[in-house]
Design a protein around this nucleic acid. Structure first.
Lengths: 346, 346
DNA sequence: CGCTATTGGTAAAACGGTTTTTCAACACCG
DNA sequence: CGGTGTTGAAAAACCGTTTTACCAATAGCG
């Protein structure tokens, strides 16, 4: 099997009967020449199936059309949607993405980082599983621009995060809208910035006496929290806002086991819109989507602008979360009416 | 902020007082020169923080130290472990990985493929979410080697898959070992090759009368299957082998709701070892791990060999699955004894 | 017509390395 | 002492593009 060797611009030039320089200019729509010549070169290139060698191109242009995505999120739960967004925003600009999983290991991070810099990436997007933790590697003073998506960076960096407070407000208001009066918030450890932000917004919306329970990010904690609430003497809630979908699933399961109807007696709303969890819950979870893919898209656009030298204001950009309706909150009539409004608005 | 511009080999040569050619040879341990000269150049390079430009290097060496990973698995459930393995096997060889999600879209696949070829990848690893489906793009007749991992390729390709039959045997035998007599297999649609393989091995191990139920790959199906089994007239099973962890979780949940104790009355075993599902189930699932990371590692090694021109036999390589013990099967005494044996063997 | 602009294109120099070739200096040898 | 190897390093060619500098031919102009 003889592998067809690649056509070089030299071949195109020879066949088209022009010099290499002219061929290059013809194909890049630069320089001056007869429209006829340009067309002829382009046709020859197409006929021969010429594809420029990106390496050689990168060497002269100082631009590799390659960026690196550095992540410490091994499950990929947060990274994958971000990655999908980045890729989507960049693929038709001809930019490819190096994915580097670094697992919180500084040595591994350095290894990947150096490899990427050697390969002349045009920029780096740093992303992680926690909005308030840094990657185990210093990305300042790099010879290429950096965008932080869903992970913490230096103060003067370009950073993208989802709006936890707005998401929490959205969730809380929806519970109120479907007629729930006594709300509680079951969420993760207080050491997470997003937990604090969401809890803050929850308290601000519900008012004083708002009850917030902290625990681990697990189904088991959702269970336990329900047991605690239902066995205690305090009045039981009729609306539960959970810090993530796993907790929400634990809550829903615990309620079902207790014979409490969801969404009949109690409405439950989650956070993350982790399809795998949200859709498998019975009933499927109404939840808050953090718009990670859009964060990825925006990160892609920004890193591209930076790579091209366009000015980009540093600072934190906050993207809104979005309510995703399934069945764990009820309020179908409202939902339908809502959608009607949305349609009319658009 | 002045960005430190990169050191070129030219700079190293000048500082070390040698020619560029000598510097190159010194750093690559090629050519002939005084040991003293070589050492001096290396020290200068280290002192200056010189890192060779991979692009320039690739241009002459015809080797980019870059490979592409093409996948259509958007959840990343199968791809991520594979990717992690690939990356692990390659990162310390200085090889970076382009990740391309193509979503079953031929046009998108072509776009990514062309971008990768333009960037002179040394090889491509194709992977997917189904072992018996092809990616929507033709990877034969490419100018670079291809390895298929967990997805179907041409007959003469290098392909890596997990051993479904062996995994299923392992699961079935374990159920027998913990003392279960009446086994059933609840699994996915018969249109999946892996379903057929696993069911075949199950039947072969259990003997005639082995009961196999097909349905969708969902928790809901696990539920329904249990309902069907427990409401029917047929004798109820005491050991259930599930086609994946989601079904297993549905089964376990349904049994608990019926007051059937797992693993007291019935043992349940899953397939996939999808941490997220397996660990959150109550009790946590004993399951079969497909060793995806190892498949990734092996794919990485193979593509590297191919890229270096080493001969690699085409054909399908099958990697064994591994039993992962948690609590849904019971048999703890056996498990402990087993581990003792394993320790002695090693 | 002689002079300057413009046009359409070419040759050569980058880009940052590696690899091959060349060459001077020195040692060995009979 | 002339011929023959070796050694260590420099010079040059090359990888496949883009870009700059340059040039011949034509056009415009008073």
């Amino acid at each position: 099997m003889v592998k067809a060797q690649r056509i070089r611009i030299y071949d195109v030039a020879r066949v088209a009967g022009v010099s290499v320089a002219t061929a290059s200019k013809a194909l890049n729509d630069t320089g001056r020449m007869t429209e006829e010549t340009r067309k002829r070169v382009k046709q020859t290139a197409a006929a021969l199936g010429f594809r420029p060698n990106a390496m050689a191109r990168a060497l002269t242009q100082q631009r590799s059309f390659t960026i690196g995505l550095l992540t410490n999120d091994s499950y990929g739960r947060f990274t994958l949607p971000v990655m999908a967004g980045v890729s989507e925003a960049l693929v038709d600009q001809g930019v490819s993405v190096f994915l580097c999983g670094i697992e919180d290991d500084p040595a591994l991070a350095k290894l990947h980082l150096d490899a990427m810099l050697d390969k002349q990436v045009d920029g780096i997007i740093a992303t992680g599983k926690r909005i308030d933790r840094r990657l185990p590697v210093d990305l300042s003073l790099l010879p290429v621009p950096v965008v932080y998506a869903f992970t913490e960076g230096p103060d003067d960096a370009v950073t993208l995060v989802s709006d936890d407070a707005q998401g929490a407000r959205e969730a809380t208001e929806w519970l109120a809208r479907v007629g729930r009066k006594k709300l509680v918030h079951i969420t993760g450890p207080e050491s997470f910035a997003s937990v604090v932000a969401r809890a803050g917004a929850f308290r601000a919306t519900v008012g004083q006496g708002a009850q917030v329970l902290h625990g681990p990010w697990s189904e088991a904690w959702g269970h336990e929290a329900v047991n605690r609430l239902w066995s205690g003497a305090t009045p039981r809630p009729d609306g539960i806002f959970c810090g993530n979908d796993q907790i929400a699933r634990g809550v829903v399961d615990a309620l079902r086991e207790r014979g409490v109807d969801v969404p009949g007696d109690v409405s439950v709303i989650g956070f993350d819109n982790w399809e795998i969890v949200a859709a498998a819950t019975r009933p499927p979870l109404t939840t808050i989507d953090m718009n990670l893919k859009e964060i990825g898209r925006e990160a892609g656009r920004l890193i591209l602008d930076l790579a091209e030298g366009k000015p980009v204001d540093p600072g934190v950009r906050t993207l809104p979360c979005k309510l995703v309706l399934r069945q764990s909150c009820g309020g179908d009539a409202i939902a339908v009416r809502n959608q009607g409004e949305a349609l009319q608005e658009s």
